[in-house]
Every structure is written in C-alpha cells, then in structure tokens.
Amino acid sequence: MITVNGKKEPFPEGMSVGEYMSRRNINPGEYIVVLNDEVIKPEDWAETPIRDGDELQILVMLGGG
C-alpha cells in the first residue's frame, strides 16, 4: 500500500512518480509532488520510483492571507 494525500491506495508496483501522475492525468509542473517529505521536481518525476509504503503528497498553491 501507499498513502496519497492521506488516503491508502494499492502499491502501484514498478511505477515511477511520472507514470503514476500520468495515470491520474496530472501534467509535470501542474502540482507540487512530495514523496516521503521530499519535493520531487518535475524533471525528476520519470526517474523516481514509488516504493511500497511510500507517502505521496500532491499539493497546490492556493490563495491565502
């Protein structure tokens, strides 16, 4: 299992961050991706594997005061 934005999901075995995002129709640079507390830059998505037990956060900058 992995955790994505706080929710458990089946482990997408053999997938990179890039492949996972592509499956969810997320384009590089659209959102901020944090894997186990580390920001993964868009240019590194394709080369970063997802491992069983990983915690993935998909974040966005919104309006705030």
Partner: peptide
C-alpha cells in the same frame, strides 16, 4: 501571500501562481 494545500481532485483547484507575475512580486507562502 499564498498558501500550500493538498489538491482536492474533485474541486478543480487552480494554481494561484498562474495569476501572480513573479517578476513584479515577492511570493510569501
């Protein structure tokens, strides 16, 4: 100022940075 949040995939949230010209503004998350 801007804020960082988890994406709500059902809410179709837009990245606020698309509306801020960073050449003229300092971002303060």
């Amino acid at each position: 100022t801007v804020a960082l949040r988890r994406v709500d995939f059902e809410a179709q949230e837009e990245n606020i940075l698309n509306y801020i010209d960073r050449k003229n503004c300092i971002l303060m998350p």
